[in-house]
């Protein structure tokens, strides 16, 4: 019971890393996305500033996700070692972890998108008013940002899980079992 709770909280924390990263990315990327949809994207210092913000957000996102996935896979080395002792193929173990990561990535990214987009919504309502700010958020923009958020979040999580999972699966089981949590 206790360990399940621990696992639950750990995955919540891992998820929160992805969640916040994507929320930040979604929020800072929205001006560019909106201009893109309104065909009002013009080069200039404004765009440069926005691009910088997106790059920064992407970086924060990548590092955050990498870190949380690395942690969450590493603390399960013992489990990986046990599964190898029970006869699991390396490829199966990697696949299990990737499916889990993908699920985690999608769910957290979706949550992140909800928060990020809600922030965009509120900020635009306050600064540009209902008519100018909110009604211009077309279904296309909403769908586009959702798709981008979930894809980027899913892909980053997958890559971040792949590296440690593969390394762990290729370790001799004795080494994997020896690692302390």
């Amino acid at each position: 019971m206790n360990s399940l709770k621990i696992r639950f909280w750990r995955s919540m924390i891992t998820g929160a890393g992805i969640f916040l990263g994507i929320a930040f990315l979604c929020f800072s990327g929205s001006p560019i996305l909106i201009s893109l949809f309104q065909h009002t994207l013009v080069p200039g210092p404004d765009l440069n500033r926005q691009l910088w913000l997106v790059v920064m957000a992407l970086l924060v996102c990548t590092v955050g996700i990498m870190n949380s996935m690395l942690m969450s896979v590493s603390e399960r080395f013992r489990e990986i070692g046990t599964m190898k002792c029970l006869g699991a193929l390396n490829s199966l173990i990697v696949r299990l972890f990737l499916i889990e990561a993908l699920f985690m990535g999608f769910v957290s990214s979706f949550g992140g998108w909800v928060l990020g987009f809600f922030a965009v919504f509120v900020v635009r309502w306050i600064t540009l008013g209902w008519a100018g700010g909110v009604t211009s958020l077309t279904p296309g923009i909403i769908a586009g940002s959702l798709l981008l958020s979930v894809l980027i979040g899913g892909a980053l999580t997958l890559i971040a899980a792949l590296l440690p999972a593969q390394r762990a699966a290729q370790m001799p089981p004795a080494a994997a079992l020896r690692t302390e949590v």
Partner: peptide, 21 residues
């Protein structure tokens, strides 16, 4: 090796090593 561990050998550990979830 995985096949051998799966079918031929059963392992028991001091720390049980059950999957907790």
């Amino acid at each position: 090796l995985a096949y051998l561990r799966c079918h031929t050998i059963g392992y028991i550990f001091q720390t049980f090593n059950l999957i907790t979830v």
